[in-house]
Every structure is written in structure tokens, then in C-alpha cells.
Nucleic acid binder design. Structure first.
Lengths: 201, 201
DNA sequence: ATATAGTTTAACCAAATGGTTAACAAAAGT
DNA sequence: ACTTTTGTTAACCATTTGGTTAAACTATAT
């Protein structure tokens, strides 16, 4: 029935690329059509309008991204091991999808809180296993006292911000693409080491 | 000669508000005019076009932001004290300007590298005093070995990312505005403590 | 007072942009 | 074969949006 079975996928791939690079407001439907190599009207044939195409991409990306996080948070690993797993997994992921975090956070900041809540409330139970683990280790005296929320924010921050601020960091540290990538590779072990050094007794 | 001496300032304040909230692509000239309470044509009378108005705002914000950072970096304080100063100063600043970092990073990511370089290359000398301080303390054996660039990225990351990701954090941690603000206030001492605990011997 | 220069506005314009339509092409059903 | 359904396109449309213009208004200088 279909002439080319992957047209819808081509559109989705193109939309993802354009939206994540330019944001909803900066993306042009024509850009997406060009990127997909199709006529602009086809976009509206497969997806009613820009808003729906955007939501399709955005929901998938933000939920997928968060799902991967909470999967590690809820795993059975011990705390220190889990910190190592999370940082290396997450940094590795962002190395290969450097635009996603900034895209998600920029768009979340454009939308009302109830929209944001709807996006995350379903899947990730809170307090999750990681929060309880941290509380337990503090209570047991195995790590120094720290609020789980603060520790988790610290961890996520160090994993993700260097990518969001990549242009700034590259410019002010005066490093080229290759050097920057080397720094990020090293962070996969550097960040967990930094965290564990801070909380261990 | 001028009817209202502060018209230009009203425009700049309005433009700053709209641009930082919606970004260059999402901002409408009409929005800025409405926010300033003036006719749209006046925008073009004081600033030739959207691009120039944007550049005016963007340059001031990004350079000012970076200047404040490098000012602390280059101060005469001892390392640990400097880390404390930076974190409390920076978090305090972002509490009162929560949109700025995300705005700057989003816009920097939309522009070519040479544009970014032009924006930062002038003022902040690199390697700056903070880099040299870290190297010296490592060499003297006063702190554990760490690359200055990694430590500085860690510090900036923990100070700024919670604000960039505020909607996400509020939603997944299920906290309200007040609780979030409390968390951020505590970070002014929590983050430097976290860093110093990690690097001290 | 009147001219002059600077300021502000309503109305307008052209280009860009999201979206529609009608016709055409390709598959699938019969 | 041929009818129907699905996929694709070029041309078109309506609205939005950045930007202009000409006239009106205000303050100052003469």
C-alpha cells in the first residue's frame, strides 16, 4: 500500500534533528521537509500540524531520557557502584546526543507547570530507590550527612552541564573539539570519583 | 529635547525580559513593544532591527555574566575561600536572574563558534588565577590531584544547572516553589562544602 | 510666536510561514 | 482491467511578523 514504508520515520528523524537543533520556535516546517527530502504538505499529511509533530518528538525524547535515568536510580546496585554506573552511562549517552538536554530544558521552560508535570508524573516514582539508599547510608554513618536531593542534583549537574555549556566552555578554556571530547571522556570516571570522595567518610 | 528620557531604557528592559524568557526566535517585536508600553515603530527608531536589539541585550548579559565570574576567579583569595565566595555569589545571582544562564547557553548553541569566541575572548585571561591556584595546591599536595578544568566545570555545573533544569527538578522531586527556593538557598553553602570535601586531603 | 529638530504613532507593506487544496501517481482490492 | 484507496506534489491561501512611511506631536531655539 505504501510507496515508501519509511516516510513517516524519515519525517520523525528529520523533525528530531531540526527541533533539537533550533527549538520549537526556531524550527521551520520547510527545514524539516527539506531535511527529510519530501514535500512540505506531506508533513501535514502524516502529522496534522507543527504542534503535534513537535509533541510527538518532545514526549518521546523527554520521557525516554528520564526513563533511562530512573532505571539506574531504581536498580539494585550499591550506592557507590550506582553513582559510577549513572555517571558513565549518562555522560556516554549525552556524548552521542549532545543537543537533547538543552533542547528539553529550553522547551520545558517555555511551558506551564502542569504540562511539565504531565510529562514526568507517570513513570518515575518518587521517593525512588536512590533517595532511600542515600538516606540509609547517611543514617548508618557510612557517608557524611547530605540531603539526597542535593546529592542527586550535584550528580546530574556535573554530568550534563558541560554539554549544555559546550560553546562557552570551549571558548573560555580555549580548547578545540578533540580536547573537549577528551575532557568529557575522562569525566565518566572523574565525576563519580569526585562525588564519592566528597561523601565517603 | 526628549519627551521621555527613559524610553530607550524602557525598551531595553522590555527586550531583556522578553528575549530571556522566549529566546531570540520565540520573541516577537510586538511583545517587546507591549511590554515597554510603546508603539512597535519606536523599537525600530531606537534600534534598527530585531537583530541589533537582540545583540545589544545579549552582549551585555553574556559579557556581564562572564565578567562577574572571572572577577572572582582572578581575585586574591585563597582557594577554599574562593570556592565558597564563588558559589554563594553565583547562586545568589542566579536566584535573582534565573532565566539568564539558559538563555545565554541556548543562544550560544544557535551561533557559529567564531561568534562565540568574539563574545568571550577579550576579557577573561586564560589560564587565569584560579587555574594556577588549583595547579599549585595539587603540586604542593594540599589537595588531591585533579585537572583544574574538571574542577571548575564541576563547580559551575553545580551552581547553575539546578536553575536551568528547575521545571524538571520541581516536577520529578515533587516540590513546590518555596521548597525549591529553600533548596537553592542551602546550596550556597552546600555546594562549596561538597567541593572542598572532595578535594581536601 | 514660529521654525526646527527630535519623538511617537497609526496605517501600511512585503516577506516569511503554517497550513490547505486539487490534481496526480502508485498500490491494493475486485 | 478498472476501481478504490493511499501517498505525494505543486500551487495556493491566510495569518503572522519584521519593518517602513507619513503624519502628528512635543520640546527647544531663535
Amino acid at each position: 500500500m505504501k510507496k515508501d514504508d519509511s516516510t513517516e520515520e524519515k519525517i520523525l528523524a528529520a523533525a528530531r534533528k531540526v527541533f533539537t537543533a533550533k527549538g520549537m520556535a526556531g524550527a521551520r516546517m520547510q527545514d524539516i521537509a527539506d531535511e527529510a527530502g519530501i514535500n512540505k504538505a506531506l508533513l501535514h499529511y502524516y502529522f496534522r500540524n507543527k504542534e503535534q509533530l513537535f509533541e510527538n518528538i518532545f514526549k518521546k525524547l523527554s520521557q525516554g531520557f528520564w526513563q533511562q535515568i530512573s532505571q539506574v536510580f531504581d536498580s539494585e546496585e550499591a550506592l557507590f557502584k550506582k553513582i559510577e554506573s549513572f555517571c558513565s552511562m549518562y555522560i556516554e549517552k549525552v556524548i552521542h546526543n549532545p543537543y537533547i538536554p538543552l533542547f528539553i530544558m529550553h522547551e520545558l521552560n517555555q511551558r506551564p507547570v502542569n504540562f511539565v508535570k504531565k510529562m514526568f508524573n507517570d513513570n518515575p516514582p518518587n521517593p525512588n530507590r536512590l533517595v532511600m539508599q542515600i538516606q540509609a547510608e547517611v543514617k548508618a554513618g557510612n557517608i557524611r550527612p547530605i540531603a539526597p536531593q542535593q546529592l542527586i542534583m550535584n550528580m546530574i549537574s556535573m554530568c550534563v552541564l558541560p554539554f549544555i555549556g559546550k560553546p562557552m566552555f570551549m571558548s573560555v578554556m580555549n580548547v578545540d573539539e578533540k580536547t573537549f571530547n577528551d575532557l568529557m571522556q575522562k569525566r565518566k570516571t572523574e565525576v563519580p570519583e569526585f562525588i564519592i570522595n566528597s561523601i565517603k567518610k
